[in-house]
Design a protein around this nucleic acid. Structure first.
Lengths: 136, 136
DNA sequence: TTAAATTTGCAACAAGGTTGCAAATATTTT
DNA sequence: AAAATATTTGCAACCTTGTTGCAAATTTAA
């Protein structure tokens, strides 16, 4: 809980019920959640718009980050608050069995060669397969 | 144009005006287009639902593939019709200057190491930066 | 505790995703 | 080539999401 308060303070965000709930929910869920899932878990305490704006706000401050799945579905997860947190390199794993998305910590990692003239600045890698729990 | 007809035939899809237009549009645009962009380029000849269903149909047959961008925006591009076409490994480049998405042909390419128990089956890599045209 | 700054809930609207169904069009069969 | 069959279209309809403005409520600062 303290962790949540300091997350807010660090980013100069006021400590409002909705923000606290969203952060608690994301922290509890080990995996990334969609906006609908977050609302569902929080219950009916806040207006849809409020949750929406809360997420926008967290995204802007990099408290959370978003992951775009295949059909365009977006999920949100707490950003790792390490020094490399603001790095724009993200690796995620989508389990097609349990539908969960995990953030994968990424070591040094080479992107494939690009055609001449292209300049890479960041990347997002979405690996798909079956996760620890679902692998049989 | 023949290419488009054979694309349809190969996939046992009937040769209807909307399908032809969508394929022509995607072929002409060197880069991936959103559904709205496709509709815009085609003009007002078809119902929104028709274009929507046309895309679903092409996706199912793997005539096109979709790319999910950062905020959840989805774009569509013709699938490469090589032998590896149905491979589920995709590399795309998003230019944050001109907003274009390019399919990048990918050579052998190693995904980063995963935590124990995770089994990768495919991946999607979205590289961001500036493209050939926009690089200064 | 009051004043100032932010955040919330609500209304409202645009756009996207999706389905059912009858009419129109394409393909197949005779 | 025409008729029969199978598909695809357009339209209505409905739900979800994204997004904004604004006044009321809440939080933070003074």
């Amino acid at each position: 809980m303290n962790e949540i308060f300091s997350l807010l303070e660090t980013n100069k965000l006021s400590r409002t019920p909705c923000r606290i709930e969203v952060l608690k929910t994301l922290k509890l869920a080990g995996s990334a959640l969609s906006e609908a899932e977050i609302r569902e878990k929080i219950g009916d305490h806040f207006d849809r718009t409020t949750v929406y704006r809360t997420l926008r706000c967290f995204l802007k401050e990099d408290v959370i980050h978003s992951i775009s799945l295949d059909g365009g579905e977006v999920r949100y997860a707490l950003s790792p608050h390490t020094e490399v947190a603001h790095s724009s390199h993200h690796v995620h794993f989508f389990c097609h069995d349990c539908n969960s998305v995990y953030c994968i910590s990424h070591q040094a990692y080479k992107t494939p060669e690009l055609p001449i003239g292209f300049m890479a600045e960041s990347f997002d890698l979405l690996i798909q397969g079956s996760c620890r729990k679902c692998k049989k």
